[in-house]
């Protein structure tokens, strides 16, 4: 249970990193990320994992 919580937290941090870095890259170089990766999917993943982290913290 603790391990799952740790893994989820790490995934949350890394997805936050993905979103920040990719958003910055898109700002300075339009298309560099969107040509290959759908940022919406990363955002959805990030939100789901964030909710799971909160759920596990609560438990």
């Amino acid at each position: 249970m603790i391990k799952i919580n740790i893994i989820l937290k790490e995934f949350f941090y890394i997805l936050t990193g993905f979103l920040v870095i990719f958003s910055f890259l898109e700002l300075v170089w339009p298309g560099i990320v969107l040509a290959y990766i759908n940022l919406n999917l990363i955002l959805i993943f990030w939100l789901i994992i964030g909710m799971l982290v909160l759920l596990f913290n609560k438990k």
């Binding site: 790490e10 890394i14 990193g17 993905f18 870095i21 990766i37």
Partner: peptide, 13 residues
């Protein structure tokens, strides 16, 4: 995980 991020950013660049 951070290695994966670096590899992905490297691939995009």
């Amino acid at each position: 995980l951070w290695l994966i991020l670096i590899i992905v950013v490297g691939f995009l660049l």
